[in-house]
Design a protein around this nucleic acid. Structure first.
Lengths: 186, 186
DNA sequence: ACCTGAACACCGTTCAAGT
DNA sequence: ACCTGAACACCGTTCAAGT
């Protein structure tokens, strides 16, 4: 285990424990067993360390996306989005960091995001060929699905999707609703 | 202009200028012409001040939502979501703060959010009666529309909706797409 | 009721120095 | 090449004191 990995591990743990404010270079160093500014030998600054945390998370999510067998593409899409939601709700801070805005255009982060998106667009193309998704620019249909999934997670995490009374809807319900509507509207 | 308002003004300006990290109680006080800890006489702590910023923004957005005449509800819905997008893209930091997660359950903030959502649900009910939106729990249809709008803004601000090549889609395009699909799928 | 100034503990970052 | 310890400027928060 390299020092760099230990630093990213510590930062990830701190993030999930107490939000981005709890990620302190000093505490990161302490947990990794190095001095409070050893991080500067591996990362330009605090934001660069956080970008590494986000990039690793993106790569892990993509790696876990492998599918057994060959179910219809639309089912793989639904499963992918539901897993995305599960991850977001289980580790909210990591989700917010990973898909938040970056002032620094980290190439590592940009490339990880690109890879995942390209694979998803391929699935949309396949589902369109199956007649399970409406025709149209696949990248645009893909954006529609991802934007809804993303927004549902954000609203849920912000408490704006509360399941109070009858009208509540969990993020996964909204994804199901959208897919059902798209199937009916070619 | 009360001191409290001046503090909220200063905090709002700082937020939009340099993100949440730039909102410093010391600088807020400086800009408001008071000492660096006068804010503590009006707000419990920094997060409470930020909650006041977010709550005021929510109230302003709701206040600007008044409509002349009586166009079909679905058009008012589209216009509302488009204005939401315009605000988010124009003032990204304020958008992220307003709809971000809050560890502190500020009642002022919760109430402002509730008011806006209730008004939107009324519009959805009217559009359903017009046959312009599919039947189903209005709160759930409303969540679908808001989640997509929200997610599209977040993706756009994070640079994940880049208009490169042919496949790019702006948030407003995605909202139009969703509404078109919903109209066709009753 | 509202504000000030000093003080405390903490943090990001830099720098000279060590192996 | 990687790490340490001291140092600097800054910040959130508290407290005693002022009007």
């Amino acid at each position: 285990v390299t020092t760099r990995d230990a630093l990213v591990d510590a930062a990830t743990d701190l993030l999930e424990e107490g939000g981005v404010a709890a990620v302190t270079l000093r505490e990161v160093g302490r947990r990794a067993g190095v001095s409070h500014n050893a991080p500067y030998k591996h990362f330009a600054d605090k934001e660069d360390l956080l970008a590494a945390v986000a990039a690793r998370e993106l790569r892990r999510q993509y790696a876990s996306r492998r599918v057994r067998g060959h179910p219809p593409a639309i089912e793989t899409i639904a499963a992918t989005l539901r897993r995305h939601i599960r991850h977001a709700l289980a580790r909210p801070e990591l989700f917010r960091l990973t898909y938040g805005a970056w002032r620094t255009g980290s190439p590592e982060l940009a490339e990880a995001a690109m890879t995942g998106r390209a694979a998803f667009i391929d699935l949309v193309v396949a589902a369109q060929a199956d007649g399970d998704l409406p025709a149209g620019d696949p990248q645009r249909v893909s954006s529609l699905l991802l934007a809804l999934t993303h927004g549902a997670c954000h609203l849920a995490l912000a408490g704006h999707l509360s399941r109070t009374g009858k009208g509540g809807a969990a993020p996964a319900d909204l994804v199901d609703d959208l897919i059902a509507h798209l199937r009916r509207a070619p």
